[in-house]
Nucleic acid binder design. Structure first.
Length: 644
RNA sequence: GCCGAUGUAGCUCAGUGGUAGAGCACUUCCUUGGUAAGGAAGAGGUCACGGGUUCAAAUCCCGUCAUUGGCUCCA
């Protein structure tokens, strides 16, 4: 007999050899049917495999991340089986579960899979899944595993196995299909009730662009048909929140082939939106002791050679502009920091001047690869809400913490509740990608980790994600489709002050080197607006929205009164417009609702004679009658609340 | 840059080799109304661009450009 302990602390005895599913059955048949995966003492186990030792069990269903992962991992096996059945010459590589489904990377040789082939794949997939084949793990000797794949002429699997220790190599069989696999399946393929092949894409073997390109087939499966329908519905809804669609509808920005790829054109409404965001941050920065600076759009190449950016990113910049007579080379400014370093150097600095916080909405240009461009989130010309804080060693942590507060204030004001605070450190395997002394890196990394900890941030650490000159704290926010984008960033840098020989005179009358903090709470105005649009679905908070109030005269007769009201609202600093079209009021309401105007004011005979306006809130309907100043107060108070 | 997809009116899209289409938006006229679409008429396109096949191309083929889903990259 063995003792099994459940997460709630309860214990039960079972005969040795019992499976996780049997254990679930002992609780309820419903649970047994729903269990997808299990773990014993934290180790993932196959749900149908015999358990021969006592331990702590956890049972996972579709509602658990672990359950979904096992489900999609198993589905990847079936996908591989499907592809092999339809394209027998395929060489399999890897096929992991991801956040939304799974993929399998395959070498199809001469064949290609097109979107038109997806229905065929889906049909075969379900045919195979319905066989209810059990997933069974078995171990293999390294030599046997190698010869198996050598015989199949599959260099990818051979490479994978060569990197594994003998004695740890396992395969998973189901039906007539077998694959190298470390485990973590559902019991059998029968639980898969619905599949959607979502995309075919190229992907490099082991993520290295010098390696052969494989075909990656993406799919998603569900234990119920209705869940697939819900997922497809979610994708439809996400499309409505796409910033590219909303940007067009709300007339915020556009692109022109003539102007160039990745070079956004801000339309008046978009430019005014940006202005409000910038002013919001400028006000906050003024309070926090920042000083504005302005630097030009081009800079001498030597400036970036000095900073090290040219060596590292020269190929990712636009090519230098050469002056006709002197032959001097200039780059379109790819970042603002070297300029700000030179501003620092414009005058001798004392420790009394520090921290010196230089801020600029600096527009920069980067030659991003064409395949990378994406709406406003990845462009070739964009404006950073940049600032560089020059401080002493002792001031780094406090300055860093203040910047965290600023980022969190912005996120709170704009209702970004879900974000990831990512600490990006050096790649411990390859320090050659970075400049500077180990000692400085350690100081910088320690400062970030401590500051984030003292601010109580829930952080994840990513190795190898640091900038080449220093570690950083990045704030990542997801778009409508769940893709993660870096918005705010804070970076500690001991290296550029060194390279630019920045100095200050300390209380000891000796020269010292300052530390630099790079920070951009929005990140780039373009990307920030994009993610903001997707978050609020185009329904901007009142303080940001272009048109706060739409005045709707009941008929043309009241247009003059409407204009008077408009002036009055403007006097209260409220942005409003009058809908003077000869349309019925129902139509005007509908259009204002669709334009996502937060407040509507209806003006007709009743309002004029009573002196009270009739107010509607977007998405809510009629709010009743108000005196104009009471309404103005309502609006201004709502704005104040949003900004505090 | 690489692999796949897409490109028709301002927007969303239909149109599989034989005269370029719809809805919304726009313009004009009628209508002057009470809380999510009043009516009529009109205007609007070198079917992304360049070549080819054909008696005939939006449609088939090749190339280019742009957009797009991924991969790689991201100061």
């Amino acid at each position: 007999m063995i003792n099994i302990t459940f997460p709630d602390g309860n214990q039960k005895s079972f005969e040795a050899g019992v499976s996780a599913i049997d254990i679930a059955k002992s609780i309820s048949h419903k649970l047994a049917k729903e269990v997808l995966s299990a773990s014993l003492d934290g180790q993932t186990i196959e749900p149908g495999a015999p358990i021969n030792q006592s331990g702590n069990i956890k049972l996972f269903t579709w509602n658990d991340k672990e359950g979904k992962q096992a489900f999609w991992h198993s589905s990847a096996h079936v996908l591989a089986q499907t592809i092999l059945a339809l394209y027998p010459k395929t060489k399999l590589t890897i096929g992991p579960p991801i956040d939304n489904g799974f993929y399998y990377d395959v070498d199809l040789g001469e064949e290609t899979i097109h979107e038109a082939d997806f229905p065929k794949l889906e049909q075969k997939f379900m045919e195979l899944a319905r066989q209810k084949a059990e997933f069974k793990m078995r171990s293999s000797k390294k030599a046997d595993a190698l010869s198996y794949y050598k015989e199949k002429q599959n260099p990818y699997k051979v490479e994978l196995i060569e990197n594994l220790e003998d004695g740890t190599i396992t395969f998973c069989d189901h039906s007539d299909f077998t694959d190298l696999c470390r485990g973590g399946h559902i019991a059998n393929t029968g639980a898969i009730k619905a599949v959607k092949i979502t995309a075919a894409a190229g992907a490099y073997w082991r993520g290295n662009e010098n390696n052969p390109q494989l075909t990656r087939i993406y799919g998603i499966t569900f234990p119920k048909q209705t869940l697939l329908e819900e997922y497809l519905h979610f994708l439809e809804e996400a499309k409505k929140r796409d910033h590219r669609k909303l940007g067009k509808e709300l007339e915020l920005f556009t692109f022109s082939q003539k102007v160039g790829q990745g070079l956004p054109l801000w339309l008046p409404k978009g430019a005014m939106l940006r202005e409000r965001l910038e002013n919001f941050l400028k006000t906050a920065q003024k309070k926090a002791g920042y000083l504005p600076v302005i630097s030009p759009h081009i800079g001498n190449k030597d400036l970036y050679v000095c900073s090290g950016h040219y060596e590292k990113y020269g190929k990712d910049s636009f090519q230098p502009i050469t002056t006709p007579h002197e032959g001097e080379e200039f780059l379109l400014k790819p970042m603002n920091c070297p300029h700000h370093c030179e501003i620092y150097k414009s005058s001798p600095r004392s420790y009394k001047d520090l921290p010196l916080r230089l801020a600029e909405f600096g527009t920069v240009y980067r030659y991003e690869q064409s395949g990378e461009l994406h709406g406003l989130t990845r462009v070739r010309g964009f404006t950073q809400d940049d600032a560089h804080l020059f401080c002493t060693n002792d001031q780094v942590k406090d300055e860093f913490k203040d910047v965290i507060d600023l980022v969190l204030y912005i996120f709170k004001t704009l209702d970004f509740k879900e974000y990831t605070a990512q600490i990006s450190l050096r790649d411990p395997e390859d320090k050659t990608k970075y400049i500077g002394e180990d000692e400085n890196w350690e100081k910088a990394e320690k400062a970030i980790i401590e500051a984030a900890e003292e601010k109580g941030l829930n952080t994840v650490i990513e190795y190898g994600e640091a900038a080449f000159y220093g570690p950083k704290l990045d704030f990542m926010v997801k778009d409508a489709l769940g893709r993660s984008w870096q918005l705010g960033t804070i970076q500690v840098d001991y290296n550029l002050p060194e390279r630019f020989e920045l100095e200050y005179v300390g209380a000891d009358n000796q020269k010292h080197r300052p530390v630099m903090i790079h920070r951009a709470p929005f990140g780039s105005m373009e990307r920030f607006v994009a993610v903001l649009l997707e978050h609020c679905e185009g329904k901007f908070p009142l303080w940001l929205v272009h048109n706060q109030v739409m005045i709707l005269p009941v008929s043309d007769k009241y247009n003059d009164e409407a204009q008077k009201l408009l002036k009055l609202l403007n006097y209260y600093d409220i942005r409003a417009l009058v809908d003077e079209r000869s349309e019925k009021v129902g139509r005007k309401i509908r259009d204002a609702e669709l334009q996502k105007v937060p407040y509507m004011v209806i003006l007709g005979e009743k309002e004029i004679s009573s002196g009270k306006i009739s107010v509607r809130r977007q998405g809510q309907g009629d709010l009743g009658n108000f005196d104009v100043d009471a309404f103005a107060k309502l609006v201004t108070e709502e704005i104040e609340k949003e900004l505090n």
